[in-house]
Amino acid sequence: MQASPLAHHFESLEKQAHAARLGMWLFLATEVLLFTALFAAYGVYRFLYPEGFAQSSRSIETWIGFVNTLVLVTSSFTVAMGLDAAVKGNGRRTALLFAASVGLALVFLGFKAIEYAHHFQEGQLPGRYYTFEGVQAPGASLYFSLYFLITGLHAIHVIIGMSALAIVGALAWRGRFTGEYHIPVELAGLYWHLVDLVWIFVFPLIYLI
């Protein structure tokens, strides 16, 4: 980034911000459809194997998903507050709030790791690796295939999102952004909110119903 954040092909900072925002939303739309493909697969197999899916869903620890939902929602809130601080030109505050979000993301991944370790011990694994005694209904291993695909892809997004937050937070700490120019703060925040949005649908589908 040069001394002036305004690229020469833009008339004003405001237009540049609008272009950046629109580009981010186009990207987020493709992300939504990426996850929708998995949700559609989940819908089809849940429709075909209602009993296997219901039993499998009951066999995993609901409280971990519940706590992780609270954690992610809260991290989204701290990201939003970080943007609020950036709008007011307070880069240090933005950096601290983004650091809190990254910390919450680590808590989320920690619970996920505990959960995955448990599934590996129990044999709640996809395909022919499925050896879980508790649920033997047809479709149970399909549930866990989709479980690992959906939560795994989401976890990758969490890692990408927390990296983006860490980088933007570090830049904010060094005073790279101002009240007028803070579009990277906003875009990193948008990505993080999308990660939260996807989890909001993952939680009931995987854990609750």
């Binding site: 629109l22 939303w25 186009l26 987020l28 739309a29 493709t30 939504v32 459809l33 929708t36 493909a37 949700f39 559609a40 819908g43």
Partner: peptide
């Protein structure tokens, strides 16, 4: 853009 993505979500699912 977002509304369009929701239309495609509805179509796909």
């Amino acid at each position: 853009v977002f509304a369009t993505s929701l239309v495609f979500v509805a179509l796909l699912v």
